[in-house]
Amino acid sequence: MGAYDHTLARVETYFDKTATKTWERLTSDAPVSKVRETVRAGRDKMRALMLSRLPADLSGQRVLDAGCGAGQMTIELARRGAEVVACDISPSLVDIAELRTPPELLGQITFTSGDMLDDRLGDFDHVVAMDSLIYYSGADIGKALKRLEPRTSGRVVFTVAPRTRLLMGMWYAGKLFPRSDRSPVMIPHDADRLAQDVMGEGVKRKLRRVDQVTSGFYISQAMELRP
Rank of each mutant, 00 (worst) to 15 (best):
A97D: 07
F217R: 15
L166H: 00
A56P: 05
M170F: 03
L99D: 09
T38E: 09
S132T: 06
V157C: 11
R80M: 13
D16C: 03
D95C: 05
D16H: 03
R151K: 10
L26P: 00
Y4S: 02
D131V: 04
G71I: 13
S92N: 10
M186W: 04
P102K: 04
G60E: 10
T214G: 07
I187V: 15
R43T: 14
T112R: 11
L99W: 03
G67A: 14
K175H: 08
R36F: 06
P102N: 07
E37Y: 00
R40Q: 01
Y136R: 03
C68R: 11
P150Q: 05
D95T: 06
I187Q: 01
L54S: 04
R193P: 00
R80W: 10
S132D: 04
R226G: 12
Q72V: 13
K17C: 02
L207I: 07
P227F: 14
E201C: 13
P150I: 05
A191T: 11
S28R: 00
T18G: 01
H6Y: 08
A86W: 10
D88P: 04
L58T: 13
R179K: 09
L8Q: 13
I75K: 07
G216Y: 07
L99K: 12
T112N: 09
Q72L: 15
R182I: 02
K34A: 12
D44P: 01
I109S: 01
S153K: 11
S92A: 15
R163T: 03
C68H: 05
D16R: 02
A48R: 13
K206R: 15
S220D: 09
R47F: 02
I75M: 15
M1R: 11
P91A: 04
I134D: 02
D211A: 15
E201L: 12
T38C: 07
A9R: 11
A48Q: 07
M130H: 11
F158N: 05
A195G: 10
R155D: 11
E98I: 01
E98T: 04
Q212V: 06
K21F: 00
F15S: 00
D65P: 08
L93E: 03
D119W: 00
G202S: 12
H6E: 12
R36W: 06
E37Q: 12
E76W: 05
K45G: 08
